[in-house]
Design a protein around this nucleic acid. Structure first.
Lengths: 368, 368
DNA sequence: GCACGTTCGTTAGTAAACCTTACTAACGAA
DNA sequence: TTCGTTAGTAAGGTTTACTAACGAACGTGC
């Protein structure tokens, strides 16, 4: 997985790319005309008309009357994206002892939620539970299904194969391929933290260069560089939970000392707060400082302007993030570097589900 | 510079991409036949023949006899890349009080070297000196010139505008545009550390996910993710010299304390060694440990498998890198992460010049 | 020695995708 | 009412890569 094997580009690939380009503009913006699209994409009006016709035939785009502007010339026919033309199915395997499923519109609006308890199931049993949940979602869908997105803990390669998921006791499980052939619909499987950063971009206006720290039982991250998810040599990009930050820290079950997880995983944070409830703010700030120390070199190396942190807001969004912000600022400031925008995620506990939706939007429609 | 404005894809763009694909295979490998190329690219023999004809017409590719394999069927006509069909001009502005220029073949072989002393020139004077050097290089070229690559200190945006180069006292200087219009040839300008990482990939078989630390007067880095140079929100990716690593460190001229540059810039290293020459190895190891501490979070975040360090080998390639390697291993190891390949650059003091060559190869021929 | 299969590369024709040019429709302004 | 402007469509051309079919050049087997 070193050299990215470039593929040849056929005319149909260019077509798909241009279709996605047009669709993205319609998806994002207010109602646009074909002429607007021609201007924004650089394609000719003729080509745009052709592309739009294809999008209308598939039901993704509709005409919605004409512009009411008072200006010379023929009024334009406005086009809008129809978020209700398909359903997107999403599964979040990262919750504790629970499978979370949902049906969304193309616009990212949650329509139906189906959760299933795992009751300690792992390995084959957990896989069966996931398959059943997927089948239930398909059955519950009321519109044509665009695809199924799955956010799972563990490391996942670009083909949606779960290389390693200790919590579920999965190893080298070709989950994407399994589900896709079984269900007969497009399926995309990716790491939970990775899909979550896609959700930040898609549903909270995040930029194309963004890191999202994911704080739950463990600590992970999703990394977006130039709009592309960073996979890493062993598909383990973002696996920062067991990077040692402070060698004077606590012992970690992994055998090392002072891993990031010993500072800012949810169990670590709650334990530290409970051990010294009177200095809650201080304890959280200390943890936030460690996170800042871990992030500062990354911020400098990638020239980051934006970092989002997802996790329980009562723990994360307060003294912790304030300390993180201050630490990074203190460690990376210069006269010319714009200050880092570090904020808590606003997506809440559905971040991974929404990330699964973003993943399907991206892979099936090319909408980032 | 947040959202990367996707451009529409015309048939001619696809053609360029496919031409580059074929050329890359010919450039890299041993002599290949059209049929080989059809197999490796996925294009048909007919299309490959057409693309090869275009490459041969431009002189980049030649036929060199037929294959001597003893097997049934018509012997294939072998094709090779002709590294002597063009000259590439390169300028390195990062040396101290000196402009370094050179003429290379397309294969990265140095043909002619032209250096000019700066004698303290900065600002407009330095710009004039650079223009003159470029003109001299063009005059000295004996073959058609493919383009000029420039590696400069400071931050450079994607359009080759030098946003800030304190050493040369440049601010918002559209160097690429200036040189390109003045010289009438393709010109690419990028940051010295950024082009150097391109050189590692092109001329030392580096992978598509690679970080190169550049140790000289200051400390910078070039970051390659998925084969793409990382620019950063303010075109300042890789600017890690003034990231604070250890707050118990030395004061930095930038006003902060414990910046990476106070540990491992060449001036800092030589000063530390001279201050305690008897413990040279220890001093270097301590610096290397700091570099490791800075890199560990980056390695984890990007899932890096390869890091290259460029700089004076008598300082870098020894106790320093050993300590860096050990620190990163100690801080990021897990049962499943492959060990990091950390090594000193083998490109020597011409890394930036060769990077400028790699930059032109990439932009003009699509050869990565 | 000769028919046969295999491989290479080309020729001829086709389909896809986008372009240019030229048109009609619909509006405001003079 | 006429004119200029803007939106969208129709017709035809160009580029690109594809499929199908061919000749050339080689080993193999009888």
């Amino acid at each position: 997985m070193q050299k990215t094997a470039r593929r040849s580009l056929r005319p149909e690939d260019a077509r798909r790319s241009n279709l996605a380009l047009v669709l993205q503009d319609i998806y994002d913006g207010p109602a646009l005309s074909r002429a607007d699209l021609a201007r924004s994409t650089g394609l000719t009006k003729v080509t745009v008309s052709d592309l739009v016709a294809e999008l209308m035939a598939s039901g993704l785009v509709h005409e919605v009357g004409t512009s009411a502007d008072a200006r010379p010339g023929k009024p334009s026919t406005l086009l809008t994206f129809d978020p209700g033309s398909r359903d997107i199915l999403a599964i979040d395997l990262s919750a504790k002892d629970q499978l979370r499923g949902a049906i969304f519109t193309l616009g990212g609006t949650l329509v139906t939620r189906i959760d299933r308890r795992l009751d300690g199931a792992v390995g084959e049993e957990a896989l069966r539970a996931a398959r059943e949940l997927a089948a239930e979602l398909i059955a519950a869908a009321t519109r044509p299904v665009l695809g199924l997105g799955v956010g799972t803990p563990g490391t996942v390669d670009a083909a949606g194969r779960v290389l390693r998921a200790p919590n579920l006791r999965w190893r080298d499980l070709p989950l994407q391929e399994l589900l896709s052939t079984e269900l007969g619909i497009p399926v995309r499987v990716q790491n939970d933290a990775n899909v979550a950063v896609l959700a930040e971009r898609r549903f909270d206006g995040g930029p194309d260069d963004l890191v999202r720290i994911h704080i739950s039982r463990g600590v992970g991250a999703g990394v977006l560089v130039g709009g592309q998810l960073v996979g890493g040599a062993a598909s383990d990009a973002g696996e920062i939970g067991h990077v040692v930050i402070d060698e004077n820290g606590a012992e970690c079950p992994c055998g090392k000392v002072g891993c990031l997880e010993t500072w800012i995983s949810v169990p670590a944070l709650t334990a530290r707060v409970q051990a010294d409830p009177q200095h809650r703010d201080q304890v959280l700030a200390e943890a936030g400082t460690q996170l800042g120390a871990a992030l500062a070199p990354v911020v400098g190396m990638l020239g980051l302007a934006h970092v989002v942190v997802g996790g329980p807001s009562e723990l994360v969004d307060g003294p912790l993030l304030a300390a993180t912000r201050e630490t990074i600022a203190h460690r990376t400031q210069s006269d010319f570097r714009p200050e880092l925008d570090l904020k808590a995620s606003s997506l809440g506990s559905d971040a991974v589900l929404m990330g699964a939706v973003a993943l399907v939007l991206l892979s099936e429609l090319g909408v980032a």
